[in-house]
Design a protein around this nucleic acid. Structure first.
Lengths: 205, 205
DNA sequence: TCAGAAGGTGACCGATCAGTCACTTGGCGC
DNA sequence: GCGCCAAGTGACTGATCGGTCACCTTCTGA
């Protein structure tokens, strides 16, 4: 049932989606929706977002607790983490769309901001742990690990927006974007910027 | 009149805003709105977004063509550019909200994606020029300047989302976020990540 | 076999709102 | 002062949609 809501909300957006359509997609009557979600349309959205964030937290935790990943070089560890996130979103366009269209909107709305922000904190917290560990062992610059985690997620988001947009007519950057269109290439791109930095060696002198 | 639309759309979101409210805020009758924007609600939104993007392109161009800025060290130039962007959005919360809530949504909607994406390309193009110049003179790593420009804008967006969110109850990161809450601190944070890179010197060996 | 519960249903209702249009207002030329 | 046009107006309408509820259809257990 939440799968149906995911598909419809992702396609039409929360406001544009009708419960009739969600019900039809779920192969239930509209009344049944209200048996499961007495809170109505909004509670369906929140349940959906909870599920989406739970899924994300789960794969992040799984990645960083995987025994094999534990003792790899820091840069390779995070580069592949970024690749895994990009692959995850690429295979789940609807999940990505919900997060962009609805979660961002709700985050900027006073009534719902706290709820969504708490979910994003969970995400950031989960990602911040291995970042803090890498800082502690001297592999990463000592900074606010929590803030770095937010920015890392933000970079993946930015990359997905950039990469997933349809080519514009007469777009002379199509080639450049195609270059970035695999999770591996995208992860290299982001990792180079974030971990190596944009400055050349001589510019640092 | 677009100012009124900006305020109302930013507060309630496009779908949630009513034209009655826009008209009231603008101190016009609803019919007058249709004299100016025969295309109705949607054409008001597009006119508004055009204005928003024009304003952004203008300040970016102004920053990079300012004579005094021309020959500063690359890192300082871009660090201050980031600070200027953060300050711009901080002073114009409504502009930021429109871009997050509506532009992002429209970018992921097949019918309107091309139009919004073209505007973002203009932004990226404007920012890409000085980045390309810095690459050409060997100050920045040779990469896809256009992609780097997108990621830079994305980082400012990510930072704004992170910084502008209201503190959550029991949020033990409030202090960390307060640390980032001035444009100067935020720009230092982003510039360190993007230009210097997260890896420590010894981890690069 | 039947009573009753649990789960499912969709026609209906009331509220909302984008868009319309017959009308008013005010200012300008003559 | 008058005619006329441009600009402005808001009550109205038709469509849409969230939410309700009286009813139906299993299923269970006695």
């Amino acid at each position: 049932m939440l799968d149906a809501a995911l598909a419809v909300f992702a396609e039409k957006g929360y406001e544009g989606a009708t419960l009739d359509e969600v019900a039809e997609r779920a192969e239930f009557g509209k009344g049944t929706l209200y048996n499961y979600f007495p809170g109505g349309k909004e509670s369906i959205l929140f349940a959906l977002l909870d599920e989406v964030y739970d899924g994300l937290v789960a794969i992040i935790e799984a990645y960083f607790t995987d025994e094999a990943e534990q003792h790899r070089p820091t840069r390779a560890l995070f580069r592949d983490f970024i690749a895994a996130l990009i692959a995850y979103f690429s295979e789940r366009q609807a999940v990505f769309m919900i997060m962009v269209k609805e979660a961002q909107r709700l985050m900027l709305d006073g009534n719902t901001a706290a709820r969504i922000f708490a979910q994003r904190e969970r995400l950031a917290e989960t990602t911040a742990a291995p970042i803090q560990a890498a800082m502690d062992r001297g592999a990463l610059r000592p900074m606010d690990a929590h803030g770095v985690a937010h920015m890392l997620m933000g970079n993946v988001h930015g990359y997905m927006m950039y990469a997933s947009c349809p080519p514009v007519d007469g777009d002379h950057h199509r080639k450049a974007r195609a270059f970035l269109s695999s999770p591996e290439k995208g992860a290299d791109f982001i990792a180079t910027i974030l971990f190596d930095g944009l400055l050349t060696e001589q510019a640092r002198a």
